[in-house]
C-alpha cells in the first residue's frame, strides 16, 4: 500500500511541472505588472526573487488561480490553470503574503473546517492529517486558541499548515518569512526544506538570503520580466572572480560596477562587479546570490535606492 502511494507520487512528480508561457498582466491605469513571463519549474524549491513592485505577487496570484492573466498560458502537470482553475486548486497549497482568520474559532477546528472546504472528507483521516500538520508546524501548544490571537510567526506557521492540507503537489508561498524573527525564520526554513522534497514549491521573496538558503533554482524578476534564472549555485558561480570588495570611494574604481555599499562597524564596505581587477584597494571576494541579484537589477535599470 505504502509502496503504491510512493510510486504514484513519483509519477506525479514527474508529470507535475509548472510551465509558464508569455504571461502578461496589465492593471487599469497602464501598469504592466507582468510583461511576458516564460518559466518552467520542476520538482523542488524554486525561488522567485525581485524588488517590491516587480510583479511577484501578481504572478503568484495568477498561479494560484486568483487572478486571470491578460495573455499567455500556465500549465501544471498538463492542467491549463487559466481554463481549469479548479483542477489546479485541487493540487494547490497557497500561502498569501498576508491573511487573516475567522474569529472565535480555534486553530484545530479552523483547520478542519478549511480541510473540508478544500474537499477532504470530514473523517478521522482528515482529523489525523490536521493533527500531523499542527505537529509539523509546531502549533500543538496552541491548537485550541483562535488564530486571531496568534503572533506573526505562529500565524505564518498556521498559514503553512492550511496550505499543506490535502498534501498539495504545488505549494505557492508569497513572502512567507516576512515579519518573522530569526528563530521563527529558521524553523520555517527547515520546514520548507522538508516539504520541497516531493512537490513543486514556489517561493516568492525579496529577501535574497531566503532564496539562497532554500532554493535550488531561482529566477529574478524585475519590471514584470524574468531577468535571470538558473540553478542557484550556477548563478552565483558565474560571478566567480568578478566580485570585488573595497572600502574606497566608488569614484576611484572606473570600469567597475558598484553593486552595493554597506556599513560594517561604521566603515563603508562596497562590493563591485568587474571582469578584471578594478585597481588597488580592491580585493576579490566570493560572490553571493545577492551580488547576482543587484547586478541583474542594475542591468535592468530597475534597482531601487
Amino acid at each position: 500500500m505504502h509502496g503504491r502511494r510512493e510510486a504514484r507520487k513519483l509519477i506525479e512528480v514527474e508529470v507535475f511541472v509548472l510551465q509558464i508561457r508569455d504571461l502578461v498582466k496589465c492593471y487599469p491605469g497602464g501598469v504592466r505588472a507582468l510583461g511576458g513571463i516564460d518559466l518552467t519549474v520542476a520538482n523542488g524549491m524554486f525561488g522567485l526573487l525581485g524588488p517590491n513592485g516587480a510583479g511577484k505577487s501578481s504572478l503568484m496570484r495568477i498561479l494560484a488561480g486568483l487572478q486571470l492573466p491578460d495573455q499567455g498560458s500556465v500549465h501544471f502537470g498538463g492542467i491549463d490553470i487559466v481554463a481549469q482553475p479548479m483542477e489546479l486548486r485541487r493540487r494547490l497549497g497557497y500561502l498569501p503574503q498576508s491573511f487573516g482568520a475567522y474569529p472565535y474559532i480555534g486553530c484545530r477546528a479552523l483547520l478542519r473546517h478549511m480541510a473540508v472546504i478544500k474537499g477532504l472528507p470530514d473523517n478521522t483521516a482528515t482529523a489525523q492529517q490536521v493533527d500531523q500538520l499542527i505537529e509539523l508546524t509546531n502549533l500543538e501548544q496552541h491548537a485550541s486558541r483562535p488564530v486571531t490571537t496568534f503572533s506573526g510567526g505562529m500565524r505564518q506557521r498556521f498559514g503553512i499548515a492550511q496550505a499543506l492540507l490535502g498534501d498539495p503537489a504545488l505549494l505557492i508561498l508569497d513572502e512567507p518569512t516576512a515579519g518573522l524573527d530569526p528563530g521563527e525564520r529558521l524553523r520555517l526554513y527547515n520546514l520548507l526544506s522538508q516539504l520541497s522534497a516531493d512537490r513543486v514549491v514556489l517561493l516568492s521573496t525579496h529577501i535574497v538570503d531566503d532564496a539562497e538558503q532554500l532554493c535550488s533554482e531561482v529566477a529574478i524578476i524585475a519590471g514584470g520580466q524574468i531577468v535571470a534564472r538558473g540553478m542557484t549555485e550556477q548563478l552565483v558561480q558565474s560571478l566567480d572572480g568578478c566580485i570585488w570588495q573595497s572600502t574606497e570611494e566608488a569614484s576611484r574604481a572606473p570600469g567597475a560596477v558598484l553593486l552595493n555599499t554597506a556599513y560594517l562597524r561604521g566603515k563603508p564596505v562596497s562590493r563591485y562587479h568587474s571582469e578584471g581587477s578594478p585597481g588597488t584597494g580592491f580585493a576579490p571576494v566570493p560572490p553571493t546570490l545577492e551580488d547576482r541579484y543587484f547586478l541583474e537589477l542594475l542591468r535592468r535599470g530597475a534597482a531601487e535606492c
Binding site: R89, S98, I117, G159, Q162
Partner: peptide, 18 residues
Amino acid sequence: LREAEHDMREIVGSYPLS
C-alpha cells in the same frame, strides 16, 4: 462575505471550491 471580512479571501479563493 466571511473571507472578505476576515482577510481570508486569497486563502479560500485558492481552494478547490466550485
